[in-house]
Amino acid sequence: MKLLKSFIVAILLFLVNTSVSAQCTFRNTAFKSGEFLTYNLYYNWKFVWVKAGTASMSVVQTTHKGKPAYRGSLVTRGNKRVDDFFVLRDTLLCYTGTDMAPMYFRKGAREGKRYTVDEVFYNYAGGNCNVNLHYQNKHGEHRWKKHSYDDCVFDMMNIFLRARSFDPANWKKGHSVKFPICDGGGRTPAQLKYGGKVTVKADNGIKYRCLRLEYQEYEDEKWKKIVDFYITDDENHIPVRLDMFLKFGSAKAFLVNAKGTRNPITSIVK
C-alpha cells in the first residue's frame, strides 16, 4: 500500500513538474535548419521612404546548454546614407528547443544615439516557467529581475518562430491569439491579430498571397501596434514584408530572397 501511494505521489509530482514545460512546447511545420531570408530595409524620413539598408533572418539547428535547439536571428543594418540622419542597428537572437519551448532571447538595439540590451533566460524547474531578465540601459547600467510563472511566457523572436506554425485556416479577420511577452523590463500582455489576406509584391519582383498579422502589446490601457507581418499563405509562412513602428519613426522590410525553405512556396501569384 505504501509503495502504491509512493508511486502515485511520484506520478503527480512528475505531472506537476512537466505541466508548464509541456504547455510551452509546440509543433514545427514551417521551417527547417538552414533557412535564410534576406530583405531590403526602408526608413521613413520626413514623410519620404528611403533605402535604409538590409535585414536578414536565419534559423539553424544547434544545441543550447547541451540540449537540441534552433537558433533564430534577425539582423538589421542601416547604410551610411541614412546613418547621417538616423542610426539603425538591431540584432535579435533566440534559442528555442526543437520542441519549440523558449530557451533564451537577446535584443541589442542601436536606434539613434541609444544602445540598449534586453535578455531573457528561461528554465522550467519546479513545474513553472522561470525567467531571469536582464536590461542594459543607454547609460550602460544593468538591471536584473527574476520571476516564476505558472503559465508560459515568450519573447518577440520565440513567439514569431512559434506563430509560423499556427494554422490560420479557420481564422476570420479580427481573430487574435493572446500571450504574455517578456523582455528585460518585465512581462507585458501581447497578441497577434489577424488582418485578412492581401497580395504583396516583394523586392524580388514576385507577388505573394499573404496573411496579415499585427503584433501588438498592451500599454497604457490600450493595444499598441509594434510590427505588421505579411507572411506567405502557405505552410512556410515566410515574412514577405514587415512594417516596424519604432520609437523614432517607422521602417519597412521587403523580401529579396528565400533559401532553404521547408515546404514548397505555393503562395506565388502568377
Rank of each mutant, 00 (worst) to 15 (best):
K5Y: 13
L13S: 09
V16A: 13
S21A: 11
A22Y: 09
T25F: 03
F26C: 07
N28D: 12
F36Y: 14
F36Q: 10
T38Q: 06
T38P: 05
Y42F: 14
N44Y: 05
W45E: 06
K46E: 12
V48R: 12
K51Q: 13
A52V: 08
A52G: 09
A55I: 10
K65H: 12
G66V: 04
S73R: 15
R77V: 13
R77D: 11
V87W: 01
R89L: 09
L92G: 04
P102V: 07
Y104R: 08
K113W: 04
E119V: 07
F121R: 11
A125T: 12
G126Y: 05
N128T: 12
V131G: 01
N132H: 13
Q136Y: 02
N137S: 07
G140R: 04
E141K: 14
E141H: 14
W144C: 02
W144S: 11
S148R: 11
N158P: 10
F160T: 12
A163L: 08
N170S: 14
R187D: 09
P189R: 09
P189C: 03
K193G: 05
Y194A: 06
G195A: 06
G196V: 06
V200I: 15
K201P: 03
Y208C: 01
R209G: 07
R209S: 15
R209M: 09
Q216R: 13
Q216P: 06
E217W: 02
E217C: 10
E219V: 14
K222A: 13
K222E: 14
V227R: 02
Y230A: 00
T232C: 01
I238G: 00
P239E: 04
R241N: 07
D243G: 04
M244S: 11
L246C: 06
L246S: 05
L246F: 10
F248H: 04
K252G: 02
A253G: 08
R262S: 12
N263Q: 10
I265G: 01
S267K: 00
V269W: 00
